[in-house]
Design a binder for these strands. Structure first.
Lengths: 172, 172
DNA sequence: AACAATTGTTGTCGTCAACAACAATATTTC
DNA sequence: GAAATATTGTTGTTGACGACAACAATTGTT
């Protein structure tokens, strides 16, 4: 069935217990000893989670000066590329709940980056647009985002980054 | 400087506004029209985030019968591979806070999968061990996790999965 | 012995996803 | 056209999660 899926590991005590013998300089304590992970290697989900944490932290750090977080950036990007979209459409596009988008837009509207315009074709919905300030800001954000992307390339290699984007293109 | 970083996009209204003309069957409404994303493609963080969401949902769904979530699985795996580890060591290994690990272990201990044993070398810390039940359960969890991993391979291709694991090996 | 550091624990805060409920409006059905 | 149904934006609640701060017990350092 499984080529080599279920590893027979599970029995690999790394002896992180009675290792305190030594003598003079106990240079590293128990926690610093390398912890074997066995069952964790080979799990795509774990690697992806750790990578996602790193990549988000770098994005936030790189765009800290303009105080834009990944979700805000994605919202601005979609609105900038498709002016007039409704909140439902943006939410569905980005896979976030419309309830959550409300607060995001509140924040962006307070910062004069986005406007909610009453749609005349459907008086329930709002047509979303970037303000002039929003468009100018987004251009700056995109420059910083490109710098962040360069950090990613440095971290995993440019070729690997390209390959990764190709592998995950279906999820974009 | 930037090879092709900052795309000059930002101006691509997809005309999702006055499109309601038609006549009889208005088969798809605004939201169903394909939304161009422009600025979002080429961003590794976004693709990784979406993939991570998918992969976690599949993991949770695949292990729903045994009610084990990714974080719990990772904790059990690390303890199973390194019996006797302290909570600090496990937390540091998995990149989670020791405060959070407390609750995770409470839950796992309630389910008789893990035991906190008083360490004799350091009376502050607990040596973590799987119970007999815990070891047997973990073996089952690993089988289900392998099935989940097969889902990943079906989704992105087995070769791509291998390559992705290699690219992200540094984060494991 | 006095001081500082570590471990497990508890608690708070802010972010986020998943729901449920609601008023206003649009669409469908009779 | 009126009644039933669905959708949109909004508000609120819940639970998972990361980041902190504070604390008692214990260990390490000076």
């Amino acid at each position: 069935m499984s080529s080599r899926a279920a590893q027979p590991a599970l029995k690999t005590p790394v002896s992180a217990n009675g290792k305190r013998g030594g003598n003079g300089k106990a240079r590293h304590r128990e926690q610093d000893i390398e912890v074997g992970l066995d069952g964790l290697v080979g799990h795509a989900g774990y690697a992806v989670r750790r990578f996602q944490i790193w990549i988000f932290q770098d994005f936030i750090r790189t765009l800290a000066a303009v105080d834009i977080k990944p979700t805000q950036y994605s919202v601005l990007t979609v609105i900038g590329a498709n002016p007039g979209l409704s909140q439902m459409a943006v939410a569905k596009r980005l896979g976030i709940e419309r309830a959550r988008l409300v607060h995001l837009l509140d924040s962006l509207e307070d910062r004069k980056l986005v406007r909610r315009v009453q749609s005349r074709t459907d008086r329930r919905s709002h047509a979303l647009h970037l303000t002039g300030r929003g468009e100018a800001s987004l251009r700056q954000f995109m420059l910083l985002a490109a710098e962040h992307e360069r950090h990613v390339a440095e971290k995993i290699g440019a070729a690997n980054r390209e390959h990764l984007l190709r592998i995950l293109a279906a999820f974009t």
